[in-house]
Each structure stands twice: as structure tokens, then as C-alpha cells.
Design a protein around this nucleic acid. Structure first.
Lengths: 154, 154
DNA sequence: TATTGTTATACTCTATAACTATA
DNA sequence: TATAGTTATAGAGTATAACAATA
């Protein structure tokens, strides 16, 4: 990519991030972006973005949650979750059912179609996980999960 | 936070993310957001956002880089970098100098004021790093840097 | 022709305030 | 009064295309 442009003395240290290379925060961001971009590309053919995929996974594991719970668990604002879920519902991948005890809220469920899409997405994700593990080496995944868990716990 | 709303059987599993809790990508995002939010709060009193702080760090370490290089090193689009740097220049924290060999590009430098602000930001960041290390435990930082580095490398 | 800086634009994600209907 | 869902809106961050000056 044209590192030696021109003819002067400027050597153009293109990708040298210097002190940032040893910065946890910086590497965390770079790693997150890299890994997320892979997932975005993998899910794109299914018309799913990572956040929507997260909803499908969560509803598979814990059906009947209400919007506030799902949004909270995924770190999404209630207000933004509405639109996100509207699209899943419009596409017939999930549905809002009335709650018997509280007419303010909905119980959220995957549809059969939604579970199919989730399953296909999971297969695509699994392929990426394998490549992740290859990069991380033996035991690397568990180590990373531990360390990240400590950061999230706060 | 009102987990026992209503009187029915719904126990409201508020923060149970189930399978996502063991997902590298999900934890990576959550950790990155948590850690970045700390930095955003710490830098806010200085009127700096993380990306701007990154520019100051980079220019301190490698003065005289041109816009394309700095943007590329930080993973920012050339077009977006222009506006970002405009603000640093407007505030007198950095400057564009003409390049002798190439009249298309600028050599970017920190000003004295910019270096002062960078220094103050670095001190605030250092405080956060200490708290990070406490969470990560002995050797945790280096382990994490290694693992993240492998994810970014590819 | 290719590259640098630049403008304009658009799209996603995120955050907040305010409304409604229920509780 | 408090909560669930909703709407509208605004702000970041990011991505792309196109242009002028220069190489």
C-alpha cells in the first residue's frame, strides 16, 4: 500500500502505533472491531446484525422475557430495542404475546422461522469460533473469557 | 430494581444472558464498552474524546506524520480525520505544517499546549490503568495483551 | 494516473426526553 | 407514583463518493 511514496527522506511509518500497541484499551477496541466485523460479514447474508442475532439467542435460551429485560441484558436502550424488535417481528422471526398479569408488557418469543434463522446464524458463527480458537491457541479462549469477565464484572 | 413486579410466576431473569456469557465476541464488546466508558468519563473534563487523545499520543511519539498516516494508524477514515484534527488545531493543541517535498500533504505536530493536555490526560488514564490491573490480577494485563494481539494480528 | 486533503452525505449506534396506558 | 412500551430527536462514529491541488 504505497509506503515508499515520494522520493524524499520520509519513510512513512504507516501502521506504527507506538505506545498504543501496549495499551489495553486500544487493543481491546481493535480486537473487538476486528472480531465483530467478521461476524457482521458472516451474518449479512441472513439479513441479521449482531444485536438482532443476540436477541434470537437470548429468546431461544429464555423465552417469554419482556422487552425491558431483553434490552437490559444486551445493553440496549429500551427505546432503541423497540425498533430493532419491530423488524424481527415484521420479518416473522419473533413475536410479541400479551402478558396475562400485566397488560403493559409483552412476552417475547422466537417463531419457528426465527429459530431456523438463529440456527443458520449459529452455524456460521461456529465457523468463526474455530478460526478464533486457532488464533488464540490452546486454552486461550478460556483465559480470554476469564480476563474479559473480570473487566465486565467491575 | 423491581424484579418482583406483579404477583404472577414471572421471576424476571433480568441480567441472565445465558449462552452469551461464554461468548468471546459478546464479552469482548461488553468489556470494551465498559473500559472505554471509563476513559470517556476521565477525559471529558479535558474536552478530549478517546480518538483525539489517540492522536495526541501518536503525534507525541511520531511527530511530523501526515494525515493519511495518523488516520490509518488509528483506524479512522481520512475524511473523518479532517474534522477531528480541525478541532484539535482550532483549540491550539496541534498544528499542520507544510511539507517541504510534497505540497499536497501536511506534517502534523503537537503544540506545547497540546503536549500539556496530553500529559494531563495520561495521568488520568494512569489512574484507570491501576484499577484495570487490580481487576485483571497479577500477570493479567500481559496475558490479555498477548491474547488480544493475536486477535488483531490476523 | 494516483495520492492528499477536503466536502458532503448517509447510515448505524447510542442516548435522552416526553408521551400513553397500565400498574 | 412508578413502570412498560413507544415516539421523536439528537449526537457520535463510521463509510463512501466526488472534487481540487499536486505528484
Amino acid at each position: 500500500m504505497g509506503s515508499e511514496a515520494g522520493k524524499g527522506g520520509t519513510v512513512a511509518k504507516a501502521a506504527d502505533v507506538g505506545p498504543l500497541a501496549a495499551n489495553v484499551r486500544y487493543l481491546l477496541r481493535r480486537a473487538q472491531l476486528a472480531v465483530f466485523d467478521e461476524l457482521i460479514q458472516a451474518l449479512a447474508p441472513l439479513g441479521l446484525r449482531p444485536a438482532q442475532y443476540g436477541v434470537l439467542i437470548l429468546l431461544k435460551h429464555a423465552p417469554g422475557l419482556k422487552q425491558t429485560d431483553v434490552a437490559g441484558a444486551l445493553g440496549i436502550q429500551r427505546a432503541n430495542f423497540v425498533v430493532l424488535f419491530d423488524e424481527l417481528e415484521r420479518r416473522g422471526l419473533a413475536r410479541r404475546d400479551p402478558m396475562p398479569n400485566d397488560r403493559r408488557s409483552y412476552a417475547l418469543y422466537l417463531t419457528a422461522a426465527g429459530d431456523e434463522v438463529r440456527e443458520r446464524a449459529a452455524k456460521r458463527e461456529a465457523a468463526l469460533e474455530a478460526s478464533l480458537d486457532a488464533k488464540l491457541g490452546p486454552g486461550g479462549r478460556q483465559q480470554l473469557l476469564d480476563l474479559l469477565g473480570r473487566l465486565v464484572a467491575s
